[in-house]
Design a protein around this nucleic acid. Structure first.
Length: 286
DNA sequence: CACCATGTTCCTTG
DNA sequence: CCAAGGAACATGGT
């Protein structure tokens, strides 16, 4: 499900639902998801605690759990991998097919499900230390972005997927940001001039901010039933098809006309991932 | 059967 | 030590 905007919208949705709720029990149906802790250690550490707050860092959900009898508060990380979902549902509803971790909240429960089980739900917060700046925060500056890019000979599209450069940009929004900035995905990072760096910096922020705004207003089903259950890459929430047609400009649009110049959008493979771009609007190293 | 998929991590090679 | 590339992880859709 997730790149930064999808996680952000999910966090805004879940936060109020979880606030103050006590975790009565935890069922780990997929032990792999809570590594490196064992399911037992995981459950023991959080059972009985209440949710204090929910935040986001890059593509990670950061749950803060209240302290237990004078002890320290505890942070729990959620990462949705490619296909992870999180939802709050009535305790008597049927569990989603690939439920991995279930938090019993009394009348409700928080369910983490994931068809491919690439995600994580863990007390190990070390991954946060590896992340680069939040692209929408004040610590993401053009100067620092430029310095980091200047050190790399890797293609700029591949660089953008490195979470230590900027946190939260994934395969979809990397293509979208480069298209918006009119920068070729194949251009070596160190060869972007100052103008392009500035343009890309602004485009990353704009693309992410617009996606958050869109996902916040569009009707989404959070029960995990429909196709629009918090996923808005493909804009499949009911009644939003028209709007969706204009949302992602190049991603998954190989062969379709570029919305700016009508040249066919091209798909290439970089670092084993698809990249979509307009070979005419995004020049340099074709 | 083939190929593709929103992400991260680990291993190998240079 | 670092950079870069590729496979692996597991399941489903087309």
């Amino acid at each position: 499900m997730p790149e930064l905007p999808e996680v952000e919208v999910l966090v805004r949705h879940l936060g109020p639902l979880l606030h103050g709720k006590r975790i009565r029990a935890v069922a780990v149906l997929r032990p792999k998801l809570v590594r490196p802790a064992t399911p037992d250690e995981f459950a023991r550490a959080i059972t009985g605690r209440r949710f204090a707050s929910l935040g986001r860092r890059g593509k990670y959900l950061v749950f803060t759990l209240h302290a237990r009898r004078g002890g320290p508060a505890l942070a729990m990380l959620g990462h949705l991998g490619m296909t992870g979902r999180m939802q709050v549902q009535p305790a008597r509803a049927s569990l989603p097919r690939h439920a991995g971790v279930v938090f019993d909240l009394g009348r409700f429960r928080l369910v983490y499900s994931d068809t491919r089980y690439f995600g994580r739900c863990t007390l190990d917060t070390r991954p946060l230390a590896e992340l680069g700046p939040e692209p929408l925060g004040p610590e993401f500056t053009i100067a620092d972005f430029a310095r980091r890019l200047a050190r790399s000979h890797q293609a700029i599209k591949v660089r953008l997927l490195d979470q230590s450069l900027v946190a939260g940009v994934g395969n979809i929004y990397a293509s979208e940001a480069l298209f918006r900035a009119r920068v070729s995905p194949r251009l070596a990072a160190c060869r972007l001039d100052a103008r392009r760096v500035g343009s890309l910096w602004r485009s990353i922020r704009a693309v992410l901010a617009e996606a958050i705004a869109w996902g916040s207003t569009v009707p989404l089903n959070w029960d995990g039933a429909g196709r629009g259950d918090g996923v808005f890459y493909y804009g499949l929430a009911p009644g939003t098809r028209d709007y969706y047609e204009e949302r992602l400009l190049v991603y998954d649009r190989a062969g379709q006309p570029c919305p700016r110049c009508r040249a066919p959008i091209q798909r290439i493979v970089q670092a084993a991932r698809s990249t979509f771009f307009c070979p005419r609007c995004q020049r340099g190293r074709q």
